[in-house]
Design a protein around this nucleic acid. Structure first.
Lengths: 245, 245
DNA sequence: CGCTTTCTTGAGACGTATCAAGAGTTGTGG
DNA sequence: CCACAACTCTTGATACGTCTCAAGAAAGCG
């Protein structure tokens, strides 16, 4: 599975300069590839993980399950992300992971990772950085869901996802895959489904973006960015030219 | 400043077994101690940090400033916490840090930390763990502010802070310092000040807790925990007996 | 002792949740 | 291939909770 390893190298390379030796170490890791159907869980709250997951293709989500039965999505992960590097040092998962659309995920034994970290500290630091970028995304989600009005909140989410998809080279033209239902959007942004729908309709009407058939289309990036009060600093990615639209 | 170093050792020891050599390495670090007045900033959004901060006493907060001028608090830190270990690998701070009440903070040069990490990888892993615990707290805040009703939300926050204060040995009897204003509570939980006040009044009336004179008093822990839908798993701390009250 | 800030309480407006029903879509089995 | 079931999306009407605005009380500070 050459591809899976390269996907990880490309992603870590977004924020960390990797030496040839680091890449070699990564290519030597055991990847167990598995495919998942939409909405299939692959790590559950309470699990004691011995593997780390790498998104090889598709989208993956983290979520909390509440006492009330409600579900809260915490973050989405694209190709190249390590959605549970958080689990590396954790006894018991405090959140679950599921596929959003169809997704393939590679599992890497923690044991091998720790050995690789010892041999190539730079690799370890790169994964650490990855977890810190995740944390920055979490922080932004706190702010987004707590302090921004509904429309801004939704626009911000799409800005982030589009920007990250672009960095991961998943954007063709002005569109990228976005297999997320209105219900899931509501469980991400903390709004009722009816409101999700109406807010999304407003965004469509603004002409800045569209979401249909599991695809996000950004028609006016600058306008969407403005609507979403979005500034990509917190993603700590290499500078990239803004989307053309 | 023996005390400052020990505070860090005690905190890291909450989740990581440190060898005598690790502690020695920590004690050898340069700590520059500074005192701050309530609400004084000491790291600003946009800064390029060269030091990590350690809370030696008092409480410290992280916050976002929004385009709209609104402030959103992201997390609070108690004695022993490294509130910006997040900044270790970050080019530019995406959030600010300020003292809540009066606080003293030790600053440690990044350069020294990296050298210490190289010499004692366990120490590096301990700090990594610390950042992952922070991330777990962020995740919980997303859920708290997005999916829980106001009263539950507020109760959950106080549960977390009390539980962490207890782990940090800052609880005497059934109370601990909590120098936070209603305005700040509102900017933490995403609610208007008037609502903060009314919700807090409800919590007081329930008899589970009180907040006055900058002190949190927990009168019925189990009741407060129930009201807050709180389960401490996500804090990933060593098991401790539940508060007696 | 006044000045400022924080807290408290009330009344009304507004926005979002809730409830409900129908349309559109997808998948399945007859 | 069609019919039906299940699910997602869409839209409307209503209820409720929270925000906003406002004003007064209490507490901290010079």
């Amino acid at each position: 599975m050459e591809k899976a390893h390269d996907v990880l190298i490309r992603n870590l390379g977004e924020h960390t300069g990797l030496a040839e030796e680091d890449m070699g170490e990564i290519r030597a890791l055991t990847f167990m590839l598995r495919d998942f159907a939409p909405n299939e869980d692959f790590i559950r709250q309470g699990d004691e993980p011995e593997h780390s997951a790498l998104v090889v293709s598709g989208m993956v989500a983290r979520y909390h399950l509440l006492g009330s039965g409600r579900r809260q999505y915490l973050a989405f992960h694209l190709t190249g992300d390590l959605p549970d590097a958080q689990g590396l040092f954790i006894d018991q998962m405090d959140h679950g992971l599921s596929a959003l659309g169809p997704a393939s995920v590679a599992f890497i034994p923690h044991r091998e990772l720790f050995i690789a970290f010892r041999r190539r500290p730079t690799f370890g630091l790169a994964v650490w950085r990855e977890t810190l970028r995740d944390a920055a995304i979490f922080r932004e989600a706190i702010t987004n869901n707590s302090a921004r009005p509904m429309q801004t909140r939704m626009a911000h989410l799409f800005c982030e996802l589009f920007y990250r998809a672009r960095a991961a080279q998943l954007v063709r033209g002005n569109r990228c895959r976005m297999p997320i239902s209105l219900t899931q959007l509501g469980e991400t942004l903390g709004m009722a489904i009816a409101t999700v729908n109406r807010t999304l309709a407003d965004l469509r009407r603004s002409g800045a973006m569209d979401l249909r058939d599991g695809e996000l289309v950004v028609l006016k990036w600058r306008e969407l960015q403005r609507l979403g009060d979005f500034s990509p600093t917190y993603l700590h990615l290499k500078r990239q030219s803004p989307p053309h639209a």
